[in-house]
């Protein structure tokens, strides 16, 4: 049984759909990469998974999360009492801006200690040794010094590791990482991704990794969900998507990615990402698509099953 399954997730602001009919499932130990460009709804989808969206947004669909004893709950229809036992304990989250997610006036050790106090009742000595071990797990050296530092005294890479330590404090089975390395320089980025990869295997962590970097997705993910302007363009096995992209948008992204790797000038996509408040009718990608057909401008594209583990939403997919 999947650890988490999203069924027909739609989020809208008034009558404006922001996310539309998103479906995916993640098995225990698997990694799903949610890929897409700024404004496509990646972060919104992560918040939906934890049911922490602002009340101004309306959500439809189901998010099934598998808890102990083969029982599963629907995160979107559960009450706050149940959600408190899920957030942090069952599902941990690391946000893009680590510094903003840390409390600037509380020392690092105390911040982890506060999470431990909520998630499990232990004595002070056990708690302190658990904090030290968490700091070591995320690769922070000199843990006794870090314990007494404030977030602003850490580098960007260390702040991101601190945020990860907090997310891991409740021993979550699922970790959602929302662009965790995009604000880091390339050396810190590589070190962080290596750490995440090590942890994933060491503690059999199930991971939902949000990224706009295809290198990250290819290096980590078993499955990929490619979003464009709030709609799913393509979903499936990473190897299938990488070797045989079916949606023209995925293909365009892969061409740019390949050009960068081969030190060639990439060919830019024509036009702009549509505004979510005023999207084009039909397929949202059609004004930029080189395989556009008359039907693309009239109705939302249908789901096409390509191999039983690879799907695209397109009238004229690449075959």
């Amino acid at each position: 049984m999947s650890l988490i399954t999203a069924e027909n997730i739609s989020v809208s602001l008034g009558r404006t759909p922001i996310l539309k009919d998103i479906n995916f499932s993640v098995e225990t130990g698997e990694t799903l990469a949610i890929v897409g460009e700024t404004g496509c709804g990646k972060s919104l989808l992560c918040k939906t998974l934890l049911n922490i969206l602002p009340q101004s947004l309306s959500v439809n669909g189901n998010i099934w999360f598998n808890i102990a004893d083969k029982k599963r709950i629907n995160i979107l229809s559960s009450g706050e009492q149940i959600l408190k036992t899920i957030r942090g304990k069952e599902i941990g989250m690391v946000f893009q801006d680590a510094f903003a997610s840390l409390n600037p006036v509380i020392k690092c050790g105390k911040q982890i200690s506060d999470v431990l106090a909520v998630k499990s009742k232990t004595d002070h000595r056990t708690k302190k040794s658990r904090i030290f071990s968490l700091l070591e797990i995320v690769g922070l050296a000199d843990v006794t010094r870090i314990y007494n530092l404030y977030p602003h005294q850490l580098s960007g890479g260390m702040q991101q590791r601190m945020a990860l330590a907090i997310a891991l404090a409740g021993n979550p089975r699922l970790l959602i990482a929302d662009e965790p390395s995009s604000s880091l320089d390339s050396i810190a980025q590589k070190q962080y991704l290596d750490l995440l990869n090590r942890l994933k295997h060491a503690i059999n962590l199930t991971l939902i990794l949000v990224t706009h970097d295809l290198d990250e997705a290819f290096a980590f993910a078993d499955k990929m969900l490619v979003l464009y302007a709030g709609y799913t363009a393509e979903y499936g096995n990473t190897v299938d998507i990488r070797t045989a992209p079916a949606h023209p948008y995925t293909k365009a992204l892969l061409d740019i990615y390949q050009a960068f790797r081969e030190n060639r000038q990439p060919t830019p996509l024509p036009g702009e990402i549509p505004s979510l408040g005023n999207p084009p009718a039909g397929c949202r990608f059609h004004p930029r698509c080189y395989r556009v057909q008359p039907a693309c401008a009239e109705q939302a594209p249908p789901k096409k099953d390509l191999s039983g583990r690879h799907y695209t939403w397109c009238f004229n997919p690449i075959e």
Binding site: E37, T38, S182, H212, D213, L214, A252, L253, I256, Y257, A259, F260, Q265, P266, T267, P268, L269, I273
Partner: peptide
């Protein structure tokens, strides 16, 4: 801080 497709557009422009 730009996306892949935006990077491609900007590199094209700058060149």
């Amino acid at each position: 801080s730009q996306d892949l497709s935006t990077r491609a557009q900007l590199i094209h422009l700058l060149s």
